[in-house]
Amino acid sequence: MKWDPEKYTQFSSHRDRPFFDLTARVAASSPARVVDLGCGTGVLTAALAARWPQAQVTGLDSSQDMVDAARTLEDAPSNLDFVHGRIEDWNPEPGTDVVVSNAALQWVPGHRDLLRRWAKQLDAGAWLAVQVPGNFTAPSHVLMRELAASAAWAPKLDGVLRHADAVDEPEDYLALFTEAGFEADVWETSYAQVLTGEDPVLEWVRGTALRPVINALSAEDFAAFEAEYASLLRTAYPQHAWGTVFPFRRLFMVGRKAA
């Protein structure tokens, strides 16, 4: 899928906060190898490299555009590198102490089996930290799916948007981590984000949830789809003088593999 690094970072102050809320729960003191799966532009991966300067920190992303952007980071720590690859093909090397995946696994069908596989492969004492969005029943996603399934758009967008099986509930991930032999901490947070500007919710989803639609349609068709969708969003997310509230639920899971 084609990604736009500049568009993705448009709301970085909001998008970055869950990453730091997630990694704050990782209590590794001196890891040797740290991996960030779905690293995007690499800015947050660089924060891991700065936190653990003695570790070799690697960011992996399936988007070559994102990896290219990551490799041009200014003042990047010397212990940081980036590779292009699919999350589903990745396996932890021996000695991998921390694995982080922030807002990426919702794009990977079968990620539950990946988590179980990684849990078996990781050494005792290793940390696994994952954050995924839990807002697939929010108006932003429901309206997008309903419009895509309408008579006008279904012929071109059938099967493009995943939703029902994208993520599980916190208790499901808690059971997965615990049954895999991890001491687990699983929670959820809903951020009441205030966005500003014209059609800010549309601008937000252009960088993430709307990407499959952008990739599936011609430029002309996407402009028509977007116009209809924007009108629906304006009703669902009314604008106030001080901004537009865009609630965003996030699911977090952090675990350390028991000896």
Rank of each mutant, 00 (worst) to 15 (best):
A104N: 04
Y8R: 10
A103P: 10
Q239N: 12
Y237M: 13
L233G: 11
V194Y: 01
F136A: 00
E183Q: 05
S30I: 06
A49F: 12
A209I: 00
G181I: 03
A119Q: 07
R250N: 10
R206P: 12
A152I: 03
L251G: 13
F182Q: 00
A47E: 15
A149W: 01
E228D: 14
D75E: 15
G38K: 03
L147N: 06
R162L: 08
M253V: 12
L115D: 01
V26G: 06
A28T: 03
L48W: 01
V108R: 04
D113G: 14
H141N: 15
S231N: 14
A70T: 04
D75A: 15
V186W: 06
S30L: 09
F177N: 05
M1D: 02
T41H: 01
A175H: 12
H240W: 11
V34I: 01
S12G: 00
Q64M: 03
E171H: 11
V186F: 08
E228S: 11
W3G: 05
V26N: 05
F11S: 09
A24L: 09
A259N: 14
V205L: 10
N135K: 07
L195I: 09
A154V: 13
A46D: 10
G125R: 10
A180W: 09
A50I: 07
Y8D: 05
W3S: 03
G134K: 00
H84A: 02
L210S: 13
A76T: 05
R112C: 08
G59Y: 06
L122T: 06
L251M: 15
G110T: 08
A219E: 15
L122K: 04
G255V: 02
V254D: 03
S30R: 13
R71P: 02
A216H: 10
L233V: 11
R71T: 04
A154G: 02
S63V: 04
P170D: 13
G59M: 03
V26L: 10
R250M: 00
V108D: 07
D21Q: 02
E228H: 09
W3F: 08
I214C: 04
Y173P: 12
A69N: 00
K156E: 15
E183N: 01
L143V: 00
R86I: 08
L210K: 13
E226W: 09
P155F: 11
E88M: 09
E220V: 08
F182I: 01
G207I: 11
L251H: 14
D68F: 01
A184P: 00
P170H: 12
